[in-house]
């Protein structure tokens, strides 16, 4: 295949990339913390339901969630989890894959904008198979 012109890539610079990864880590930690809090709250409420007693709400309100990391960063983290490799510790490698994700996501958005009706079937050719007798 011959590469076509693709100017949609907007490579993330190292600083922004590091910031995004940090945000991912923060978001992951925050999600874990929120999940733990929620679990506790649910447990407490369950107890309340059984006893009929009303427990006072916690005084320290949960902090607002940090801004979620962009999809390309989440995808990058997914790749790191599903296909772990020491090369994925390199910022240059991560930068390269990140750029590919940005390009793929842009293409995905454009594809989604194409108007399709429910009756528009995929162009697959599929037929029931019977081995020759």
């Amino acid at each position: 295949m011959t590469p076509i012109a693709d100017d949609s890539n907007d490579p993330l610079n190292r600083r922004n990339f590091a910031r995004s990864l940090a945000a991912t880590a923060a978001a992951t930690a925050a999600t874990a913390a929120t999940a733990a809090t929620t679990a506790t709250t649910l447990d407490t409420n369950a107890d309340d339901a059984d006893t009929g007693k009303k427990t006072p709400l916690p005084t320290n309100k949960p902090k607002p969630d940090p801004e979620p990391p962009p999809p390309a960063v989440l995808l990058l983290e997914t790749v790191r989890q599903l296909y772990p490799h020491k090369q994925l510790d390199s910022k240059d490698v991560l930068q390269g894959i990140y750029s590919e994700f940005q390009s793929d996501l842009a293409r995905s958005r454009r594809l989604s904008q194409f108007p399709l009706k429910n009756s528009d079937e995929p162009g697959f050719l599929f037929a029931a198979f019977q081995s020759p007798r």
């Binding site: 995808l75 997914t78 790749v79 599903l82 296909y83 090369q87 490698v93 390269g96 894959i97 750029s99 590919e100 994700f101 390009s103 793929d104 293409r107 995905s108 594809l111 989604s112 194409f114 399709l116 528009d120 079937e121 995929p122 162009g123 697959f124």
Partner: peptide, 22 residues
């Protein structure tokens, strides 16, 4: 080395929609 990783994450609906537009 990068492209192979990125393509693994393309959602199935994109492939199917591409096949619907084809």
């Amino acid at each position: 080395r990068y492209g192979a990783h990125a393509s693994l994450m393309i959602p199935a609906k994109d492939y199917i929609n591409a096949m619907r537009i084809r």
